[in-house]
Design a protein around this nucleic acid. Structure first.
Length: 444
DNA sequence: TGGGGTTAT
DNA sequence: ATAACCC
């Protein structure tokens, strides 16, 4: 064996080039937990959170009685007549607590990626390295894993990869403790060498438990999936196309000719999902930071007149103006989205967007509703560009989105830009981005 | 199927 | 602007 090869092996083993420690943190039935914190009398009862005619999530008491996520309210009540329902269409409190969780995790390590409101990935690689370097005397014998080990695989204290994941499991336990002590929330965690595996393993022991995956068991984990649709990254459409090729389980996807796969899905998707089928995922944990967009939507039984649409749009916009104002950054683009009634074309939406005139952008920050009327006018123009209001129509969803958010001080790849203009005033808004903000003019 | 989000094309 | 993915 050459020296060069030995050195390379050690670099790889030490993880400086390829081996990472990732944790996936997944809150237990998040909306239901938030509701039980808001109203402790709900604790112990079967609880469902309702949006329109759906029970979007429920606590474990309800699950034991047969209620499932995204179940029809009628079916749920039939299965479980004692089910208590609370309305969860207003996401404000969920969103606020969701960001508190992310901020808490960021205190452990700043690299935190959100996935929806109730899941986060954290790259623990650096933190684990630091802890190992600060171990008193290289005495590994005192190290113990926290929580479950997938497959009950035994830990080899002489294997550096095992040791690193074990330290990751200890950090995961500290994170869950902190979430419970500081926010009153329980959740699961999965620790593994990449995001895919961390996410898959976090769901193995379910509520309020954690699991670590050691590399020797990664094939068992991915082969435990009954169908490729359970692979994160393979959605409804891709699963259908794969099925048409006769590919339905992980083994099929691992062994199908990559040329055939590339021809059907295109090279980037084909290569990515075939790697996923082997449990390989080199995608980084990308810090989410503040949101890229703010949107509010409402699904409707039937919206068939312009005045009806206008009043819904006004409602959506009023809530959004509050949110945008509190955030402190300024959106430069506004978008209106609709869904037309048409039994077929599953979930198809149409949208129109335009940039927001700079004089309106300024008014967004004032906390008053000066921006309301002109914004509604803009939105109604977008509306009429999609919907011929002289003809009959039937819409089942309206959504308004602010995006293309620009900060007063933006940090991009190490550079800091300050945008300042003369006239300024303090505002009633108290977002964390909004201290001492000055008005700006930016390219648009 | 709700009421959100993201990235890629 | 849409389509795909995630929850």
């Amino acid at each position: 064996m050459s020296v060069g090869s030995a050195v390379h092996d050690r670099v790889v083993a030490a993880g400086s080039s390829s081996s990472r420690v990732i944790v996936h943190v997944d809150l237990d039935c998040f909306y239901a937990q938030v509701e039980m914190i808001s109203n402790p009398e709900l604790k112990g009862k079967p609880l469902g959170v309702q949006q329109k005619f759906l029970v979007v999530t429920c606590n474990y008491e309800a699950r034991e009685l047969g209620v499932k996520k995204l179940m029809n309210v009628r079916d749920a009540k039939e299965k479980c007549p004692q089910l208590v329902l609370v309305n969860g269409e207003d996401l404000t409190r969920y969103r606020e607590i969701s960001y508190k969780v992310t901020e808490l995790l960021e205190e452990f390590s700043p690299v935190v990626e959100r996935l929806g409101f109730d899941e986060n990935f954290v790259d623990l690689t650096e933190m684990v390295e630091k802890r190992l370097q600060q171990l008193p005397s290289d005495d590994l014998s005192a190290l113990t894993v926290s929580g479950h080990v997938y497959n009950d695989q035994s830990i080899n204290l002489h294997d550096v990869l095992h040791i690193r994941l074990l330290v990751g499991s200890q950090i995961a336990a500290e994170m869950r403790e902190a979430m419970y002590n500081q926010l009153g929330l329980t959740g699961c965690a999965g620790v593994a060498s990449n995001k895919l595996l961390a996410k898959l393993v976090s769901g193995i022991f379910k509520p309020n438990q954690q699991t670590v995956l050691l590399p020797e068991s990664s094939q068992d984990l991915i082969h435990s999936l009954k169908h490729i649709k359970e692979m994160p990254g393979i959605g409804y459409k891709t699963a259908k196309r794969l099925e048409a090729l006769g590919i339905s389980n992980v083994h099929d996807l691992q062994t199908v000719s990559s040329k055939i796969l590339e021809k059907e899905l295109g090279i980037p998707i084909a290569q990515r999902i075939q790697k996923l089928s082997f449990g390989e995922d080199n995608s980084p944990v990308t810090p989410s930071g503040p949101p890229q967009s703010f949107s509010e939507e409402e699904s409707l039984k039937k919206c068939s007149s312009e005045v009806e649409a206008k009043s819904k749009i006004q409602e959506l916009l009023a809530s959004l103006l509050n949110r945008v104002c509190q955030d402190g950054r300024k959106p430069h683009t506004i978008r209106l989205t609709i869904r037309r009634y048409s039994s077929e074309k599953y979930c198809s939406r149409e949208s129109r967007q335009c940039s927001i005139p700079s004089h309106l952008i300024q008014k967004l920050r004032t906390g008053s509703y000066d921006a309301m009327t002109p914004m509604v006018d803009i939105l109604m123009k977008l509306f009429r560009s999609m919907v011929n209001v002289k003809m009959p129509f039937h819409l089942t969803l309206l959504s308004v989105c602010f995006c293309n958010l620009k900060s007063l001080t933006t940090t991009k790849k190490g550079t800091i830009d300050y945008y300042l203009t003369p006239s300024s005033s303090t505002t009633s808004c108290s977002g964390k981005h909004s201290f001492k903000m000055k008005d700006t003019h930016m390219e648009d």
